[in-house]
Design a binder for these strands. Structure first.
Lengths: 176, 176
DNA sequence: AGCAGCATGTAAAAGGTTACATGATTCC
DNA sequence: GGAATCATGTAACCTTTTACATGCTGCT
């Protein structure tokens, strides 16, 4: 039920197509939400059918046409109503930790490799978030003020990645 | 696809019923995995049909009968094979952060309340993890050694909750 | 010539949630 | 008398993933 609000939130900030949304998911909210392009298109159709979005087709040179979606008034009020309701708790499902939990079936070397692989992934995530953070800092101060709360989520992403790395590096040392 | 391995991992440590598993999910791996009792029963039936588990019925006094599941040999080897494969990346979906991301529709007071609610939730989680940690420390040293890697996942849970709380408390101060 | 990026979709399968259903015992 | 715990399940629904499908442009 939250995907629809993720879509509404992004379209509220700026209208766009399904393809745009997919990219914006990756660039701006990947630290707390993920969705595939199929999910986008389905959700956009549904929201359009329910009258929360409207849609205009835009021709482009050298590129295929786009369908630009934007919030209708009822879309806007659905979004504002939802932000004020308490959010359901997160459901965590982390395959890597599940594997470590079954880690007594791994040799020391295998465990080390697995931890190293995941450290690399998390280093990359952290770097991506830091770059995003720099882009935000360079942006229009007015916008920064308006989206100050939104930006706090990125800072949390950065801190949790750092905690991950500290943990992983300590674990790796103990495995060596 | 990971739920089946979560079930196999827990039954590898100790055989049990669907009901047992549900409780063990809550008590021991809730910091990185969650599942409902319906999911358990469905998965147990499937794994049993595929020959990865066998099942014996156990009568109990004053309580309903239980079906105790345990790994078969092919269950064990499926599990050992899986631990060695690289784990797929986590898919994060955190409704609360999504709401903060749309936070320009909240008044300062509403934002404060939302952050406070979530701080409370995370404080409770952290406390639960710390209690679990104490139980582990009090347990048989032989078991502690055997499940040392598994225990590392709990330590990560504790560290990420702490990072959450530091972030949330700083945010709350700035909102006040 | 081949690949990456832009842009939109369909269909089937797998995984997860919610609601309903039953029935005994123990504790307050 | 009522609620909580133990114990197992069915059915309907919703969400997510995976695979397939098309076609144009720009770069190397």
């Amino acid at each position: 039920m939250s995907l629809r609000y993720a879509v509404l939130t992004l379209l509220d900030i700026e209208p766009g197509s399904g393809y745009d949304l997919k990219r914006r998911f990756e660039r701006s909210i990947s630290h707390f939400w993920s969705a595939s392009h199929q999910q986008m298109y389905r959700e956009l159709h549904k929201l359009h059918a329910e009258g929360l979005l409207d849609c205009t087709e835009q021709a482009q040179e050298g590129k295929p046409d786009k369908k630009i979606y934007r919030l209708t008034e009822s879309g806007g009020s659905a979004l504002r109503e939802w932000v004020q309701r308490p959010a359901p708790a997160q459901k965590i499902r982390e395959p890597f930790l599940l594997q470590l939990f079954a880690g007594h079936h791994l040799t020391r070397g295998q465990a080390r490799d697995a931890v190293r692989r995941h450290l690399d992934e998390h280093r990359e995530l952290l770097q991506g978030y830091l770059e995003q953070n720099e882009r935000v800092k360079q942006s229009d101060p007015q916008l920064q003020k308006r989206f100050w709360l939104a930006h706090q989520t990125l800072l949390l992403g950065i801190e949790t990645e750092k905690a991950w790395l500290v943990w992983g590096e300590r674990l790796l040392e103990e495995l060596e």
